[in-house]
Design a protein around this nucleic acid. Structure first.
Lengths: 134, 134
DNA sequence: CCATACGTAACTTTTATAGTTGCATTAGTC
DNA sequence: GACTAATGCAACTATAAAAGTTACGTATGG
């Protein structure tokens, strides 16, 4: 188990799906391949479904499939769907007691926000269809 | 207690020190101001000492002081001294079993490394003496 | 009607970090 | 020289976030 494996799991799974977009995959299949648990897979892919990247079907022949063409799903789409915020944090800073702390927080979070944006931009340059081609 | 408060603690403390560079501060003073524990302070500031940003003195009139002029210590110096790597991770990825995972990891860590660099660059633009002036 | 899938809630396990305690060492002060 | 007050460090505990697990409800194709 590692920290922040959700993004890895999501990207890994979608990259595979990009190869065979029509194939339906079950949570169990995906979990086995990724070395994790079906419930974890459903948790992660559920967020991608909410974001419109995937569709899921219940019942006997159910499973997961891409909701769009692989070329139309960028790594940024995946990242944003998971609410990751790898760099910046959304924490509501509890009333900075001292003015220096306040100024510091403002400046640091400004920098982190810029970096967060450029991360999204960079991730937006690659679609999940392009991942395999190193 | 919050995640990754070490950088906050370090920057906050050094920003204060930048205002009165000659004043000697004890771990206990600093901990009280920051709302934490003297040992935690020594752990964090110890890394800054290793990096040559601070000096410490033992004994009766001991404590902590800047080792350089405040103008000559950037936020990047502090960040790097702590080995933070907020964006990229140093994890040795345990032999990716599948080729897609391999390609993915290569691409993602490439992006993260670039972003990490630009974070350091951005942090390098501000010295701890400049923090107070929002 | 039954097998198989997702959806979700509740709980347990794991891991990183902060926090704490205790003690050795060092250095001023009386 | 004894005393006091500081850092240095090791070992332990506490907390919180994330992953993993179990259990069960719901839907659906055969």
């Amino acid at each position: 188990m590692k920290r922040n494996s959700r993004l890895s799991l999501a990207l890994h799974t979608l990259s595979h799906m990009a190869g065979e977009p029509d194939r339906m995959r079950t949570s169990t299949d995906i979990a086995d391949h990724a070395g994790t648990n079906p419930v974890v897979v459903r948790r992660v892919l559920g967020k991608l479904r909410e974001a419109g990247l995937l569709t899921s079907e219940k019942g006997h022949a159910g499973g997961w499939r891409l909701a769009r063409k692989p070329q139309d799903i960028s790594m940024a789409d995946v990242y944003l769907a998971l609410d990751e915020r790898l760099v910046a944090s959304d924490e509501i800073s509890a009333a900075p007691a001292c003015s220096i702390e306040h100024a510091l927080h403002k400046r640091v979070s400004g920098v982190l926000e810029e970096i967060e944006q450029s991360l999204v931009k960079k991730l937006g340059e690659t679609s999940i269809a392009e991942v395999r081609g190193a």
